[in-house]
Design a protein around this nucleic acid. Structure first.
Lengths: 148, 148
DNA sequence: TCTATTTATATCGTTCACGATACAAATGTA
DNA sequence: TACATTTGTATCGTGAACGATATAAATAGA
């Protein structure tokens, strides 16, 4: 048994697990909005700037369009967004929030604070969360595939 | 637009993204073994201790058996593991490595080091990776659902 | 012993992720 | 203008994740 192959020595497994546990922690909060976690991320993107093409949304979330397209279709069926052809470039599909999608922002306002309570543990505090953000962001940049 | 709902202020999104990017970075390395990332995690568990029931494997990975069962079936089809009924408790399914599964450990030996090169960025070094482990582990513990 | 409860695993349905591929619109080039 | 290439999105297939539910074996309690 190689030491470096032990689960406890894997950085990857920690991120894998935390990511899933966070999504699980979000589930009860997001059920109030009637959305999944990836759908919530799309809403965050659109609340920040409404009326974006599929590709821009995908880029913000570091996802491919073949993941985002069906996601957006489900959100369209739920009446959260509309999708219409771009005017300047008719290949584009512009995604806009519906009245319902817009209004959900109000309901989502307290979710970050409620999730913050879940993060409340010895190692992550208001003081050092900035450092953690920095570490994670540099890791993200390093891992991002080359965008030529 | 509420400040706390911006994507850049989300801890969750950082973990979500990093987890996916890490899995993507593993893909070319794991293709040499012919396994997916979750399957690789199962191998890590079994290389550490062969012949575990499904439930133990699931617990190590913080997964449910309804995720692990089909995963193991696919690995069985690939000839990496065998699944046989437990002797003490016939409800249990004991998972063992095959000769092929055992031998893969040798091929996997250098994967952690190769992945380490991907992590090589300003913010994560040999000096501070221990601190990061500690932070991530405390977060994991906090997020783990109560196991009564 | 008989029945109720718990435990270990499996099945089903839905939603993601993502590689591979398709296709039409836009752009570049001869 | 004609044709090749690029770009934006969609489709298809596979493998996770996971909630809900099912089922049989084991255990507990009356």
């Amino acid at each position: 048994m190689y030491e470096q192959l032990k689960l406890e020595n894997q950085l990857c497994f920690r991120f894998y697990t935390i990511s899933r546990l966070i999504t699980q922690a979000y589930r009860p909060l997001l059920s109030r909005l009637g959305v999944t976690y990836p759908q919530y991320l799309v809403l965050l993107v659109l609340w920040e700037k409404d009326g974006q093409p599929v590709n821009d949304i995908a880029k913000h979330l570091c996802l491919e369009t073949n993941t985002v397209t069906p996601l957006l279709k489900r959100m369209e069926q739920e009446g959260l967004v509309t999708r219409h052809q771009g005017e300047r470039d008719s290949r584009q599909v512009i995604v806009c929030l519906t009245e319902k999608g817009l209004k959900l922002e109000e309901s989502a306002r307290d979710i970050p604070a409620e999730m913050g309570a879940n993060y409340a543990c010895s190692a992550i505090t208001r003081d050092n969360v900035g450092d953690l953000f920095q570490t994670l962001d540099s890791l993200t940049e390093t891992l991002k595939p080359e965008k030529q």
